[in-house]
């Protein structure tokens, strides 16, 4: 089990090799990628920033919770920091389990909780040259602090 913040490109093939386990009948992976639009605005690139020691600590807590709730064998989650281009991998999660149900559910739990709790921030750079820290607006529709779906 590992939750890691990295400023390097994520290499899923290499990460998957570390999850080899013949007890596992299932391996579910999730890729979060940089999307070209958000809330109807054209996105050019993203910056991610993290409070690394606490992000890794809170991330590990989430993995422990996922393992308590679901019968999984191993979980690996890697999240990027730094400047990312469209299509780049921002977050990658893999869960191995004896059976697929637990693997799917644990994977969903990890990404949902990570988005809500781990101290990582995202700044979007838009096609019109403007920028915005997501969820940090103090006026307008995002000002309630509600996270986008």
């Amino acid at each position: 089990m590992e939750f890691r913040i990295t400023d390097r490109d994520i290499d899923p093939a290499a990460l998957l090799r570390s999850l080899g386990d013949t007890r596992a009948g299932a391996c579910v992976t999730f890729e979060g990628r940089v999307r070209q639009q958000n809330d109807g605005r054209g996105v050019k690139s993203l910056d991610y920033e993290a409070f690394v020691p606490l992000a890794e600590k809170e991330g590990m807590k989430i993995l422990d919770e996922a393992r308590e709730k679901h019968a999984v064998l191993d979980i690996l989650c890697v999240h990027r920091t730094g400047s990312l281009a469209l299509g780049d991998l921002a977050v990658w999660i893999a869960v191995t389990a004896e059976h697929r149900g637990a693997a799917f559910e644990a994977c969903r739990y990890v990404i949902d909780e990570a988005k809500a709790r781990v101290p990582i921030w995202k700044k979007e750079h838009y096609a019109d040259g403007s920028t915005e820290w997501i969820n940090c607006a103090t006026r307008g529709p995002g000002a309630s602090g509600a996270a986008p779906a």
Partner: peptide
């Protein structure tokens, strides 16, 4: 707020030598 790399309530006491971090709403993923 985090004090010495752990989340803490806002009522946490400020002590000499502490490291405090102020954390805006998160947006990972």
């Amino acid at each position: 707020v985090a004090v010495n790399d752990d989340f803490q309530p806002w009522s946490a006491e400020v002590r000499e030598g502490d490291s405090l971090a102020f954390l805006p709403p998160v947006a990972g993923g």
